[in-house]
Amino acid sequence: MRTRRELTTPAERAVHATLHTASLAAHPLRRGLDQQSAEEAAPHLRLLTGADALGIASDDGDLLAWNGPYPELAERFTELARQSAVDGRRALVSNPGSGAIALVAQPLVVEDAGVVGVLGVVTNTSPGPGMLSAITEVARYASSQIELAELDASRARLDRAEVRALRAQISPHFIYNALNTIASFVRTDPDRARELILEFADFTRYSFRTAGEFTVLADELRNIDRYLTLERARFGSALQCKIQVAPEVLNVVLPFLALQPLVENAVRHGLAGKTGTVTVTAEDAGTDCVVSVEDDGVGMDPEVLRSGALDAVEGGESAHVGLANVDDRLRAAFGNDYGLVVDTAPGAGTKVSMRVPKFRAGIAAAPPRPTMDPL
């Protein structure tokens, strides 16, 4: 029988131990540099540098963590850290006190951000070129993890900005027309007006919520149904709607407000005021879920799509509001295999489909928030 190859040589064991220690240091630093992450990473960084004691300071020189003996040297380290942060260069003090041989302050530098912190090393031996090089490499490694944390945070901020942009793109004409439609029922059919007011309130409450960048398909479809209810009240029999959903995909997670732009475009630009049908389907496709929004309206020239003009301007207003935004968010969340697919031709209607994985590690919908009971 063949067994897994063991790490037998000292060199192999040393490499394995170093990589394991580096991964333990990376985990907290990927959250960004603060007191908690510094305290968690400090013992692992100390092992990597071979230091007798190790400190981590902020870019202002404030002490975030100290690991090992010589706590009385922490204040001396913060003074050296401030100098190193300003200069952006390594600083070294021989015989800093308490019997230590050297104190080294190595700035943590992130490209385009400058110094984000300072690594401090206390040693009982004179730091030679090898040790100084090791300190530099560990600092560079720590800096790269902090930079990745900032990139993650920037991506999250971008996602939030894109959601805000989608909210802003919810047509003001729709809101104006919905309120006008409700007003028209107030005298002729008060019960119907009340129902529409509640649908409108729930639609706007969901669309402008602040909880997370992801939602489940069931919630997204529920809001689409509210939107279509309001539009059918306005257009009457000119607008027919069909929603066909496989029950097993209702809990699939997708970007928040991913469906709204697709359905709104089908109503506004696909039917263009003509009598027609909008069909929303969600199907089980093995490891994926396929959601499609189709209209039997005017369609468009595929060449416009091939030119990359998903958000082309027609008459001063976006012809396909938010589709490029949704496409970008799908690809950012799930990869390039999960963008939008558009099938259209002049006079043949338009079908926009998205493929979403049933499960993706690290992506989850925000927990539902309680809604207020209507008065």
Rank of each mutant, 00 (worst) to 15 (best):
R209D: 15
L271T: 06
G286L: 10
A42I: 11
A102W: 05
V352T: 13
L63G: 08
A25L: 13
G347P: 01
H173T: 06
A139H: 02
G299M: 04
A165S: 05
F203M: 11
T371S: 14
P172F: 12
P368K: 06
V267M: 04
V138S: 11
A139S: 13
I182G: 03
V293S: 05
A53E: 12
G335V: 06
G339A: 09
A102H: 06
K358S: 02
F77P: 01
H20I: 07
A348M: 03
A105C: 11
A74W: 04
L73N: 10
L330I: 03
Q83K: 12
A312R: 01
N95L: 13
T204H: 03
E137A: 15
L166E: 05
A14Q: 10
L228S: 05
W66P: 06
R31M: 12
F77D: 12
E39G: 04
R82Q: 15
V116S: 10
D288Y: 01
T8N: 09
T3P: 02
L271K: 08
V252N: 03
D189G: 02
H27I: 08
Y176G: 01
L310R: 01
M300K: 02
N177A: 03
E79C: 07
A149T: 03
A168T: 05
R187C: 04
F359A: 02
E150K: 09
H27Y: 07
L47H: 10
L29F: 14
R90L: 14
Q244L: 07
H16P: 00
V356A: 04
E231Q: 13
A14H: 09
G97Y: 07
L54C: 10
R306V: 01
V278L: 07
L103T: 01
V293G: 01
G32A: 12
A41F: 12
E75R: 09
R205H: 14
P368E: 13
A100W: 08
L103R: 05
S144V: 11
M1W: 04
F77E: 12
H44K: 06
V110N: 12
F200P: 00
R209K: 08
R160V: 02
A100E: 05
H20R: 15
H173Y: 12
N177V: 00
D202I: 11
V278W: 09
L310H: 05
I170T: 12
M1F: 05
T181S: 04
D225W: 01
S154Y: 01
A42V: 09
M131S: 06
G339P: 10
V278A: 04
S144D: 14
N325Y: 03
D59V: 08
